[in-house]
């Protein structure tokens, strides 16, 4: 089986050397030292490893590297542009107590970024539904919903 030798991550082509069946999360973490995406379960149940693939939220732990050929991968490390955080990152900071251990935060933020792309002004119920696949064991869920609402409002104000 031919090895996969390149990956397009955060706008840059990166050299890798991986079996097509290798998990994207493992390759990101072990070959590219991009540790912002987290391991939590290995079965797509907790969302800690969430990345965007062509703009859509995907669980990188159950995504094979082979399936990402020719696609654009965005990780938490790629949200910041020229020193400016993404509005969702800003909102998590502004809703300061949204962060306890914050191990879930990368995945939460990536899922929220994907949500706001397709639904810029979600209701609380729509946010909760969209975030159902992301676990926070510290129980910051109400603060995370508040942060995503805050991000959507910032988006609205910026657009107005």
């Amino acid at each position: 089986m031919a090895k996969i030798q390149k990956l397009r991550v955060n706008g840059t082509e990166r050299a890798i050397d991986a079996d097509p069946q290798s998990s994207l999360l493992t390759v990101l973490r072990e070959q590219l030292d991009m540790t912002g995406s987290k391991y939590g379960c290995g079965e797509g149940q907790c969302g800690a490893c969430t990345v965007l693939i062509n703009g859509t939220a995907r669980r990188s732990c159950i995504t094979t590297v082979g399936s990402t050929e020719g696609r654009e991968i965005t990780t938490i490390e790629g949200l910041e542009h020229h020193g400016r955080l993404h509005p969702v990152q800003d909102a998590f900071l502004a809703e300061g107590a949204a962060l306890q251990c914050a191990y879930c935060a990368s995945g939460m933020i990536m899922s929220a970024v994907a949500l706001l792309k397709t639904n810029p002004h979600p209701s609380e119920q729509e946010i909760a539904a969209a975030m159902e696949g992301n676990l926070c064991r510290c129980g910051t869920n109400p603060r995370i919903i508040a942060a995503i609402l805050r991000a959507s409002q910032a988006h609205q104000e910026a657009g107005a």
Binding site: R29, T35, S37, Y39, L85, F92, G96, L99, S106
Partner: peptide, 29 residues
């Protein structure tokens, strides 16, 4: 006062290195 997590920015950018994110030269798994 309600002071936010002091190093919060490292956590929303994925820069913070948790125990499972630590690495060393020549490291094996």
């Amino acid at each position: 006062q309600s002071i936010a997590k002091v190093d919060a920015r490292d956590f929303v950018t994925g820069k913070h290195r948790y125990p499972s994110d630590q690495t060393a030269p020549g490291m094996l798994y």
